[in-house]
């Protein structure tokens, strides 16, 4: 049984922010990650504030200037099956449809998918690890086959989201409402790696609610994709993955964003690889060079060197597939 808590379901964003500003309170959206964390004692809560009655946080809408607004409570299924998202933001629909299982996609929200806690088995298990206020990261000398190969420092989690890399590639921004008001920032700046603060994964503070995701209007000659490698064909987290967003002009890459999943504590953007393909045609050589750049700074742990090969393979494959598409 989940430890005891009280429950509230406010009818306004303002009230929700107010209630969530009280210490010991936690936000409930889809609940798929939260209930697991509460049951395993990873986090504690005296009170849950459910935002499920905030209808304005739901749904996908196109604004006047062609950009797209996705409410944070929109489910992964709704995003995966949305015709406009499928057509113009393929990386996002591919990320959403490859996350978790059908049941979890029907319940899990995009806001929750971006803000979910890491799946590191020491963090989720009975280990008082660094991220939970302890002294050490047990992955360093432990079972680290699913941990990060880049961006780790003191803590070696990987960010588990499949939609976040896709959204960063697509230049998404997020809107957050908190006790100090509302702010909008690029999703790329939303995530916090362990070198900056190993007790958090993102910038959300007490009382903050991620309310919406904003995607720029679809550009001409633009393509995007998300490719994920996992141990099973479905219902598994990424061992390695890549979100691509590329603008072409007569077959030449004008602009590229390359963001990796499954290999770093935050969705990992590789600017050097982006530079390699920009201004060129994608061919075997550029794809191979870009793939090599993606692992240039990687330092694998004892049991995850295989990820270097996976990253190179998946990046190369995704780039070449995009050329042919």
């Amino acid at each position: 049984m989940i430890p005891w808590f009280t429950y509230s379901r406010p009818n306004s964003l303002k009230d929700a922010v107010k209630q969530l500003s009280v210490p010991g309170t936690r936000l409930h959206a889809g609940g798929t990650d939260l209930l697991g964390c509460l049951r395993d004692g990873v986090v504690a809560a005296d009170k849950l504030v459910s935002i499920s009655h905030l209808a304005e946080l739901r749904g996908i809408t196109r604004t006047g200037n062609g950009s797209v607004r996705i409410g944070a409570l929109t489910t992964l299924t709704e995003i995966a099956e949305h015709p406009y998202i499928m057509e113009h933001y393929a990386a996002l629909s591919e990320g959403a449809s490859s996350a978790a299982s059908p049941q979890l996609r029907n319940q899990g929200t995009i806001g929750g998918n971006i803000s979910q806690r890491p799946r590191c088995w020491y963090f989720r298990g009975d280990f008082h690890c660094l991220r939970k206020g302890g002294e050490a990261c047990y992955a360093v000398a432990g079972e680290n086959q699913f941990h990060c190969i880049v961006g780790g420092q003191s803590c070696f989690i990987v960010h588990p989201s499949d939609t976040a890399p896709a959204l960063i590639a697509l230049e998404a921004r997020v809107r957050i409402t908190g006790p100090q008001g509302t702010r909008t920032l690029p999703l790329e700046s939303f995530f916090v790696g362990p070198q900056k603060d190993f007790t958090r994964e993102n910038v959300l503070d007490a009382g903050d609610i991620l309310t919406e995701i904003l995607l720029p209007a679809p550009a001409a000659n633009h393509r995007s994709s998300y490719r994920k490698v996992r141990a099973r064909g479905a219902w598994d987290f990424a061992l390695a993955g890549v979100a691509l967003s590329v603008r072409f002009s007569n077959g030449i890459v004008q602009l590229a964003r390359i963001v990796l999943s499954g290999v770093a504590p935050v969705p990992w953007r590789v600017r050097e690889a982006e530079k390699i393909v920009t201004g060129k045609e994608i061919d075997d050589e550029t794809a191979s060079q870009a793939a090599a750049a993606c692992v240039k700074d990687a330092v694998p742990l004892a049991k995850n060197e295989y990820k270097l090969h996976l990253v190179r393979g998946v990046v190369e494959e995704a780039l070449l597939a995009m050329k042919q598409a």
Binding site: G31, L35, Q103, Q107
Partner: peptide
């Protein structure tokens, strides 16, 4: 009409 895990759904939800 959508399949969900009842173990991860609070009754109140």
């Amino acid at each position: 009409d959508r399949p969900r895990y009842s173990c991860l759904t609070l009754a109140l939800e």
